[in-house]
Amino acid sequence: MAEIIVVTSGKGGVGKTTTSASIATGLAQRGKRVAVVDFDVGLRNLDLIMGCERRVVYDFVNVIQGECTLKQALIKDKRHENLFILAASQTRDKDALTVEGVEKVLNELKNDFDYVVCDSPAGIERGAHLAMYFADRAIVVVNPEVSSVRDSDRVLGIMASKSRRAEQGSEGISEHLLVTRYSPKRVAEGDMLSIADIEEILGLPILGIIPESELVLQSSNAGVPVILDDKAPAGQAYADAVARLLGEERPMRFVEIEKQGLIKRLFGG
């Protein structure tokens, strides 16, 4: 039976879609059958980050409304044949996603895949609620910054009371934090919350620490999930997070200040 993973955060712009794309790609690299679903109706973007924006024919809402089959709407990733993308609709109708519709699509996906990754929109409105509602596991993306940490806690609270698992009184969603845009240098200077601080405030285990990196923007520009750049620290950090998700133990990397060699310091990195 497939596991449904929601990637959420509350606050916008912290790296949910980047994370969804890289985690889904990483799981596919490890041989899992993966579907990644964009829940941001009206503001579709996962297709861009995955680099398949020109191949979107049908979307999530088309499937819910019976205008096409799920098979027709799933876009096969160009690099991994076991990875599929379901794009969000660009409709402005906020009510296009329904609980019944989402449940039907997710149930169908669960039959065909090992993992269904749900990319949540920002906020705590309908799309965000539906993305988390059926989840078995949650990756809460957080930046080491006050508003992001606060919003994460809010989202965790909503998940604890408003998810289906909570409503059924079954075992809760298993929750992890993924810290993005982490800068060990700024932490050392005392101007950024440290990993220990975030763990203490939110009281949750850390799945991964993604260092602040220019390469993340480059990857988005190119439509190639950053995890595919195995030279980039951010890519390696996502690969570690995927390994941990699969139950492997990996030491946390990129939490110390990178020591620069003399040449790099002279000529710039």
């Binding site: 910054e145 006050v146 940490v149 606060r150 806690d153 809010r154 609270g157 009371s161 932490v187 200077e189 005392g190 101007d191 950024m192 919350l193 440290s194 601080d197 203490e200 405030i201 939110l202």
Partner: peptide, 23 residues
Amino acid sequence: PASAAVAKERLLILVAQERAQRG
């Protein structure tokens, strides 16, 4: 003074407060 320490202090108080109201 390190601003991160101030952020942590504020967040600890705020999160505790918001959690108490929750539920």
